[in-house]
């Protein structure tokens, strides 16, 4: 993985504050946990029926009955709980998740999220994504700033089928941290070495700049 992606993941980890209940979506968000200090007080939730996710296990260490929603073998921590799928999503829909981190194909300037379907190419089903996007108290996205062809993933409006409308609060990319506000995208931080102009060039909608100096972010291990 590129170091820019690693630094994005490390920066996103600082979004998690002590005491939160957090769901980390499949893909890049799952790796955020690797950047949390070992004793950090947080409760990780997974849709298939568990709170208190512990470290990921290799196949030879794994319990065959203990996976996360992405199919990785995980462990318990003292205080973990198991429950059925209805209970798991009762937690999601009733607002028990303080934060969810999701991947994205597209995010619009009004915070619409498209991350489950590319008609004709990719349609594995929506899984738990709609409920996470619509009901977590804070939804942040981790994504590369552009797709493999270099097209912006942050756009004025989404062209792909939506997961949920007006749900994304903040976007972490391999170039910048960007907030979704009533005025549209606002640049919050850039990755060290990348200019605001470069970020704006790679963004498919107007990008507002703060009045103050723009902080740069780097990986900060161990808080």
């Amino acid at each position: 993985m590129s170091s820019a992606k690693e630094r994005m993941i490390a920066r996103a980890a600082r979004e998690i504050t002590p005491g939160m209940v957090v769901n980390l979506g499949i893909g890049l968000p799952t790796q955020v946990v690797n950047h949390l200090p070992r004793d950090f007080p947080v409760c990780l939730h997974t849709e298939n029926g568990m709170t208190g996710i512990g470290p990921t296990l290799t196949p030879d260490q794994a319990d065959r009955n203990l996976i996360d929603a992405g199919g990785s073998y995980v462990s318990t921590v003292p205080g973990s709980a198991f429950f059925d799928s209805a209970t798991s999503f009762a937690m999601v829909r009733s607002g028990r998740l303080d934060l969810t981190m999701l991947g994205a194909f597209e995010v619009s300037a009004s915070g619409d999220l498209a991350n489950w379907k590319i008609p004709g190419k990719f349609s594995p089903g929506v899984g738990g994504g709609v409920e996470l996007a619509q009901k977590a108290r804070r939804v942040v996205v981790l994504t590369t700033h552009t797709d493999r062809a270099g097209n912006p993933k942050l756009k004025e409006t989404c062209s792909l089928p939506l997961t949920a409308r007006a749900c994304v609060a903040r976007i972490f990319t391999d170039m910048a941290v960007i907030d979704v506000t009533p005025r549209g995208f606002v640049l919050v931080e850039t990755l060290g070495g990348i200019s605001a102009a470069e970020v704006a060039e790679a963004t498919g909608a107007p990008l507002l700049l703060p009045d103050t100096d723009l902080p740069e972010f780097e990986a900060r291990h161990g808080r």
Binding site: F89, A90, E131
Partner: peptide, 15 residues
């Protein structure tokens, strides 16, 4: 033929 449901909604419909 495939019918996709949001995961928690499938759970609630069954419940």
């Amino acid at each position: 033929e495939v019918e996709f449901n949001a995961q928690g909604i499938l759970a609630e419909r069954i419940r």
